[in-house]
């Protein structure tokens, strides 16, 4: 699968250059206010676009994903850190999925 290695080289190359060039080359601080502001907002914009609405389709059916999303939002709101937030997301989704598969049909 030679195509895969070309894709891998492109993505790894771009990602590494973005991280490496500023650390190795830039000695002065950036002063352009628009650039600074844009760079401040871009992480949150990117992560939001990737999460909403894709997150709701991350599990087989939509209900566990929505529950997992909300279960993650609550500890994140109180700044609980990555391991706890990730665990809540998975736990919420798993319990909901189990409910749909094993409990709901028996009711």
């Amino acid at each position: 699968m030679p195509d895969f290695f070309l894709y891998l080289a492109v993505m790894a190359g771009v990602t590494y250059l973005i991280r490496m060039l500023p650390l190795v080359l830039i000695k002065k601080k950036i002063t352009n206010r628009f650039v600074l502001s844009f760079l401040h907002y871009i992480p949150y914009a990117v992560l939001t676009v990737m999460t909403v609405p894709a997150c709701f389709y991350a599990t087989g059916r939509i209900e566990p994903a929505v529950v997992g999303f909300i279960a993650a939002l609550i500890p994140a709101w109180f700044n609980k850190g990555l391991p706890i937030v990730a665990a809540c997301a998975c736990g919420g989704a798993l319990l909901t999925e189990l409910f749909f598969v094993y409990v709901l049909p028996t009711i």
Binding site: Y41, C55, A76, V85
Partner: peptide
Amino acid sequence: AALGIAIYGMFIAIVTPVARADRATAACV
């Protein structure tokens, strides 16, 4: 399927506290 949502949990863990504290970031989100 349930574990697959963990990666979004990471994004939520990064974005939410900042959006809560800063209105402009919340608007951006």
